[in-house]
Design a protein around this nucleic acid. Sequence first.
DNA 1: AATTAACATTGATTTATATCAACTTATTTA
DNA 2: TAAATAAGTTGATATAAATCAATGTTAATT
Lengths: 229, 229
Amino acid sequence: MKVNKEISCYTCENKCDIYDVLEHNATDLLNVKPVHVTFKKNEIICKQGNNVTHGIYIVSGTAKLLIEGINHRYIILHILKPHNYVGLLSFFESHKYLYSVYALEECKVCMVDIGFIKNLYRENRQFLCKLNEAFGKSVAMIMKKLITLNQKNIRGRFADSLLYLAELNKSKSFNLLLTRKELGEFCAISEENIVRLLSEFKNEKIIDVNKKHINIIDEVLLRKISEVG
Amino acid sequence: MKVNKEISCYTCENKCDIYDVLEHNATDLLNVKPVHVTFKKNEIICKQGNNVTHGIYIVSGTAKLLIEGINHRYIILHILKPHNYVGLLSFFESHKYLYSVYALEECKVCMVDIGFIKNLYRENRQFLCKLNEAFGKSVAMIMKKLITLNQKNIRGRFADSLLYLAELNKSKSFNLLLTRKELGEFCAISEENIVRLLSEFKNEKIIDVNKKHINIIDEVLLRKISEVG
DNA sequence: AATTAACATTGATTTATATCAACTTATTTA
DNA sequence: TAAATAAGTTGATATAAATCAATGTTAATT
């Protein structure tokens, strides 16, 4: 973890919603005082149960957002990429993170004091709406996950995850940053069964797998499986 | 479903957050134009996928909030009682309900135009905070449900639900408004296994069951089961 | 370069839970 | 009040998916 306070929104190459909103207000922009922090692979960006002190915005890299359940078992809810907010969900609720975020590869994030964000939220209607919208989407997504994990069989869940990752990477061919175990935590399947499903889908000519690289060959069929299992 | 528009917040016996917030603003209070609607048992109060047109507040009765999943299978998320809001979660997200609400017994609700609520939300800081807080709690609750349904065995899940219902009714002895099937939809257990669990827990002297009436005898043990399954 | 640790794979076995089937008891509806 | 429908119950059976165990492969560390 490496901290850099010597940055300014004016010269930032990764302008975020906050900048967009403040663009016309020089005084506020001067007060933002953003901090860039670089996390190495596997480092904790935020930890479930800890106080929410900052709004966090992914500048570069990839991270996993997970809830820590019983007996050190996890459910990965999201894979975060640049321009995603971390801590959104927790912002509304009390003051503790409801989940943890870990870097899957080197990650640079921009942190803004939560007090500043709350003020902005209260005073700026545009910001309020943007944040609400993003928040609403997260909730919709969790509810969808609840249905998926509960009512689909492992083939359906697995297909869902592959489609999610393809969309995330904006390509049918992508590099898996997750281990087999983590992929399991993403669709609530045991590590062993993930391995079996990978070769099963490969045999059925639905995907191509080579170590960490996945290529979706038959997207139509994958969508069908996601629906009917 | 029976509608009554002849009501006024001034004389209402079930003053809600909206009233509290508007108390000092006579003009707004005149503009609220609330509508009271009475739903009979099993009637739909709001339907997943429909447009969100009103903020809904439970005045009397009990309702179930559920998400409709695959092949007409449901997951009941909440049991709603007086002073709960319906439609909270959906307010932020797009304009469609993410879930349905059905009356479990005769229910009277108060409906306020969503436009009015959105205005209030934007203009009144106190209301904003109240709504955000309630919203955050819902999210925390759904995430807890996600873990529970995924990582606990049926005994643990069943114990959880009994504890939830006791808390809801503010008593260890309560009348179940849910059928065995619905209780199953609440903890993602088949109807048959719900029946088996009821008699299992009865035999183990953890609860007393008589048709729809449940009495929790050994709360300590029930909490233990909820933790370790 | 050698050793260790993390990650991945495969087959066999177990188990928790759903499903099926048959039946009883309540609650509506005609 | 009978007939029909819904709700509840019980035991037997099936099965999806986890777990266990053994082993191979890759990556990290001394």
